[in-house]
Structures are given as structure tokens and as C-alpha cells.
Design a binder for these strands. Structure first.
Lengths: 229, 229
DNA sequence: CTATCATGTTACTGACCGGTACGTTGCAGG
DNA sequence: CCTGCAACGTACCGGTCAGTAACATGATAG
């Protein structure tokens, strides 16, 4: 009568399926030269179409919510094509996140490069754009964050990518806080990270008009307070 | 060749299955008096065991990750017992969240009641406890937030409960910010909400030693800055 | 003792899950 | 032209998904 509980629980990922290829970070795709002229439209590879569709669906609906059947149907291909390019659905999800990671750092560095030597302005610029994006009616937050929520299991391919991204983000925010001359740079960096994650989540929770739109303002206030000390 | 896209997409929840009972907010369960003496151990109702197991599993593993078969197996009951007490898995998830909502406000009000008339101390007290909880090795964030990430579909029973909880939290935080005398109370209230949501997420993303442990300190700094204006 | 009724059970449904064995097609190089 | 091979599709696997029909049990009320 006491919740049996005899059954094993798993909190660490254990893979299934074959052990082959990848895509993002792909070795020999579209290698060097098809020929001199051949680029008017080399038929789009199935793998690329799959990844493209998967990115869209995974982000908007969630990874667990989307089956591989739906991905291949929308991509106009079949399942073996998927499994020839990706070892498993979990690895396809990881590829989606690796692509997301690239895009993320592009956006981040764009804000950084717009204000050389001024980390405070860099942060505010980045968060102003984040705040704007959260106000789009179909905003679905950060793909990384969402994936980590969907897969709490340690070692899951999607979670691994997600955690690495967040660790790096934390590192950079703390470095920027130090560069600002904050008394407790680590605390400020972490505070900024909390605001960012809060914006990602609140953006999809509250929709337009939600608290995420004030993220840049609040970050600036927090920086202000942290520098005064 | 252009991502077909002819298939309908759904962003609003449409229910399945029967249309019967509930549990949290249950009408006639354990009504008034079994008899004068009969309370040495009235056999625990299956519905309660199910809800108890579901709460644990849904929180720790996620709702989508847990099937009804596993719930009833661990609860030591069978599926029809589940479906007699809950109209669907989605409604069971909603019941789980309604229970979570109750517990949440208990914790919140506990911090509030500990510092009557001092909203700033109330917030700091609440966030100190949140920060501590995020440092537990198996911390999994806020059940409400996680559910909203798992179910982006508008109108999904779980998401409805979750959104209501967050709306109310936002309302109270803004009210407390106003009570503090903040110049822009709404911005401060929203900033606090961002920090809280950030702590929930970061807690499960980074584990022990993550940025969430600084949430109370950062909230206090943010309040400080917002009052000075 | 018997009728009632809530609660338990076994056994099943069709759809979908991720994943795969194997045959077919189309294109390049000889 | 034929061969070889990679890229594709057909058809299927066992397992699990949420949900249900039909029946058994056990306590209570008359």
C-alpha cells in the first residue's frame, strides 16, 4: 500500500538505435566544388529538408509533441531518409539545437559588436531585441530552455547541447559584468541570466503585453544598482 | 518542393474522451461522516493514490514523458480506476497543477505573513526560500512553468491552470511593488517576476551552484534601484 | 436475504511511437 | 551499353499511447 516504488527510475539518458552520422558539423556535405557552373539548383538534399522542417516544428510545438512521421510527411520524404542522416530522433533534436545555438550567438554577438568596449550597452541592446521578440504573438521562448524542460534526463543529447549553451552564456555574462566593474560581478552576471531566462519563459507564458517586454529596463536598473555598490 | 504545409496546424486545444468528473475541487468525496468511529483507516481511495503518484511523476519527469500506464502501475491500480476519477490524462495533469497551485500560494503567503506590512522583506523572504530550493540536487523548477512549456497549445487544461497562476502572481507582485512605493511599480513587479521565472528555469538547468541561488540578492538590488528613482 | 452502487478487475481497441529490413530508382564512370 | 553505388521508397516491426467495454467484488441499505 505504499507507492510500490520498486521500479527502477532513470535520470540519465541511455541511447537507442544505430550509431552513425550527424548533420550540423557534417563532414562532407556539399564539399568543395560540384563543377564550375553547377549551382543553378542542385536538388535540395532530403537531410536538409528534414532538418529545416524539424527546426520549425520542434521550436513551435515542442520536441516531444512532434513525431518523426509528421516530420518526414511535411518534408515530403520518408522515414528511412531521416534515419540515414540522423542516428535517432534525439540526435535530430540535438542537431536542431546546435543550429539554434549558432543563431543565438549570431544575435548575441551582433549586439556586442554594435557597442564595442561598452558591455552595459551591449547587454541592453541584446535585451531590447529579446524584449521585442517576446512580444511577437507566436513567440515560443528559447529553444534551448524549452528542450531542457522537456528532457530533464541527464545526458540526453538535446539537453547536453542546451546545457553547454547556457554555461557559455553564463560565463560571458559574468565576464561582461566584471568588465563593467561591478563589485560582485558573478552575482550581477547571474542576475542578468535570471532576467533573460525569465524573459524567455514569460514571453511564451503571458504573450503580448507580458512582463518580458520590460527585461531591458530591469536589466539596466539591476546593473545600475550593482555598479553603485 | 516547398514544404507542403497544406496540413492543418492546431494551436488551440481540442479535448478528447468523456466529459465527467474532476478531483481537486471534488464535489462529494469523503462527504461528511462515515460513522462516529470509522476512521482507523478507511482504505485510501484509488483516485487519491493516482493523483499522488501523478503529481510526483509529472513534476519530476514531465507530463508528456509519463504515460497513464506507468501512473496506474505505480499507484497499484488499473486504468479504468483512473478514467472513472479523471476525464482524461490532460485533466489529470490539470488536477496535478491545481494542487501545485494551492501549495504554491501556501509557500508564498507564508513568506508574506512572516513580514506584515513589509513587502520588500516579504519578497526577499520568499526568494530566499526559492533560492534554497533551487539548490537541491533533484530540483525540477516550477511545475506550472514546465507544464506551459510542454503544452504551448492555447486552451490546454494544464496550460489554463498554469496561466491563471502566473497572472495572479504577476498581479500580486505588481501590487507589492506599488506598496513599496516604487516609481514604476509595474516595471518592478514584472522585473521580480522575471527573476523568479529565471530562478525556476536556471535551477533545473544548472543544478547546484547555478545562478538561481543569487535570486534573492538580485531581487533586493533591483528593488533598491527601483525605489531610488 | 437481496438489490444497489461504487469501486475494483481483465482484456481489448485503433492510432501512433521510434526504428529497420529490403527492394527500387537514377545517375556516374567505364 | 552495362556496372556499381548511393539515395530514395515500400512495407513492416514490436511497443506504447490514451481510452473503453464488460464483468467481478464488496460494502451498505432496505
Amino acid at each position: 500500500m505504499l507507492l510500490t516504488g520498486t521500479l527502477q527510475e532513470r535520470d540519465t539518458y541511455v541511447p537507442t538505435g544505430n550509431i552513425v552520422n550527424q548533420l550540423i558539423g557534417r563532414p562532407g556535405m556539399k564539399s568543395i566544388e560540384p563543377t564550375i557552373k553547377a549551382n543553378d539548383a542542385p536538388p535540395p538534399r532530403a537531410a536538409e529538408r528534414i532538418l529545416q522542417v524539424a527546426r520549425d516544428l520542434f521550436y513551435r510545438q515542442g520536441i516531444r509533441a512532434i513525431g518523426v512521421d509528421e516530420i518526414v510527411r511535411r518534408a515530403g520524404v520518408t522515414k528511412p531518409s531521416l534515419y540515414r542522416s540522423f542516428p535517432s530522433k534525439d540526435e535530430l533534436a540535438a542537431s536542431y539545437l546546435r543550429h539554434y545555438d549558432l543563431e543565438f550567438w549570431e544575435r548575441f554577438d551582433e549586439a556586442v559588436n554594435a557597442h564595442p568596449g561598452d558591455p552595459r550597452a551591449q547587454i541592453v541592446a541584446f535585451l531590447t531585441r529579446v524584449g521585442k521578440r517576446t512580444q511577437r504573438p507566436d513567440y515560443r521562448g528559447c529553444g534551448m530552455t524549452n528542450a531542457a524542460v522537456e528532457y530533464p534526463e541527464h545526458g540526453h543529447p538535446a539537453r547536453v547541447v542546451s546545457e553547454a549553451n547556457k554555461q557559455e552564456l553564463r560565463r560571458r555574462l559574468r565576464a561582461m559584468a566584471a568588465e563593467m566593474g561591478a563589485g560582485d560581478a558573478d552575482t550581477l552576471g547571474d542576475g542578468l541570466l535570471l532576467l533573460i531566462e525569465g524573459a524567455y519563459i514569460s514571453g511564451q507564458l503571458f504573450g503580448v503585453g507580458g512582463p518580458a517586454k520590460s527585461v531591458a529596463r530591469n536589466a539596466d536598473l539591476l546593473i545600475e544598482a550593482s555598479l553603485k555598490k
